[in-house]
Amino acid sequence: MVKQIPFSGILNNKRIFNPDFYNWNRIKVRYCDGSSFTGDVAAVNPVTNLHFRGARVWLAVMEDLLSKGMRNAENAILSGCSAGGLASILHCDSFRALLPMGTKVKCISDAGYFINTRDVSGGHYIQTFFDQLVATHGSAKNLLPSCTSRMKPGLCFFPQNIAQQIRTPLFIINAAYDSWQIRNILAPGIADPHGHWESCKLDIKNCLPSQIKTSGYNSWLHCFD
């Protein structure tokens, strides 16, 4: 029995909620690899039995969809939210390359524009995290060569370093106050061991003037000007 999955946003099949795309063929790819589908490590972790093969999952899914009719699409949109939004940026041009030249292809990233900025302690928590992620998953070979030829692979996981190099039309949607990035990039727990930012990072109205004026916070807001 096929399980019915409720869709929302541009995947909704109700014209009243999704007038532009309600009658399109819609495919939801479950996120399962932790690297926005860029990982490619042949060996399996002997301790955890984890597989770091997101790029292979991506290609397998695309090949299956192409064989089921996607190769005949007149219009195609690759979209995603959060880590999926990052995946839609990282794979935008490769998705375009899979389809015939006559197909109109666009990419939409929703809340996937993760910023490389200093945290409230002045450190580079998210940069270190992405460096480790790329190393663990063996992602370097699947990131944009035009970026990895100029800087270390971990930096090429940040949209700000690759978005301008993408040739396919790319639309980016991101809230000016991105609560996940405030909590996990600007003020992660490791950068705020005493919890001084706990209230502020959950609601900007709770921030003290001194917190608003910190260079890291001002830099963060400036990214969305």
Rank of each mutant, 00 (worst) to 15 (best):
M1F: 13
V2G: 01
V2N: 05
K3Y: 02
K3W: 04
K3G: 03
K3S: 04
I5F: 07
F7H: 09
S8V: 14
I10P: 14
N18F: 01
F21T: 05
Y22L: 02
W24F: 09
R26P: 00
R30A: 13
S35N: 09
G39W: 01
A43P: 11
P46D: 09
P46L: 04
V47F: 03
N49I: 15
N49W: 06
H51K: 14
A55W: 00
V57T: 07
L59I: 06
L59Q: 11
L59T: 07
A60V: 02
V61L: 06
E63K: 10
L65D: 13
L65A: 15
R71I: 14
E74V: 10
N75E: 09
I77Q: 01
L78T: 04
S79T: 08
A87R: 00
L90E: 00
L90F: 06
C92Y: 03
C92T: 03
S94L: 01
S94T: 00
S94M: 10
F95I: 01
L99N: 10
P100D: 10
V105H: 10
V105E: 09
C107G: 12
C107Y: 08
A111L: 05
G112R: 07
G112E: 04
Y113P: 04
F114M: 09
F114E: 02
I115C: 02
I115M: 06
I115N: 04
T117M: 07
R118I: 00
R118G: 05
R118V: 01
R118W: 00
V120C: 10
V120E: 08
H124C: 14
H124K: 08
H124I: 15
Y125P: 07
I126V: 02
Q132R: 13
V134F: 07
G138N: 11
A140V: 01
K141E: 12
K141V: 05
L143G: 06
L144V: 11
S146N: 04
C147I: 06
T148I: 08
S149R: 07
M151G: 04
M151H: 06
K152D: 03
P153S: 07
L155E: 13
C156S: 05
F157L: 04
P159F: 00
I162F: 01
Q165W: 09
Q165E: 06
Q165R: 13
I166A: 05
I166C: 04
I166M: 00
R167M: 08
T168S: 02
P169S: 05
I173L: 13
I173Q: 06
N174R: 05
A176Y: 10
R183G: 03
A187C: 11
P188I: 12
G189P: 09
A191N: 13
A191I: 14
D192C: 11
H196G: 08
H196N: 13
W197M: 04
L202S: 12
D203N: 10
L208P: 06
L208E: 15
L208Y: 13
S210G: 11
I212N: 11
I212F: 14
K213L: 11
T214L: 08
Y217P: 03
N218I: 15
W220Y: 15
C223H: 11
F224D: 07
D225N: 15
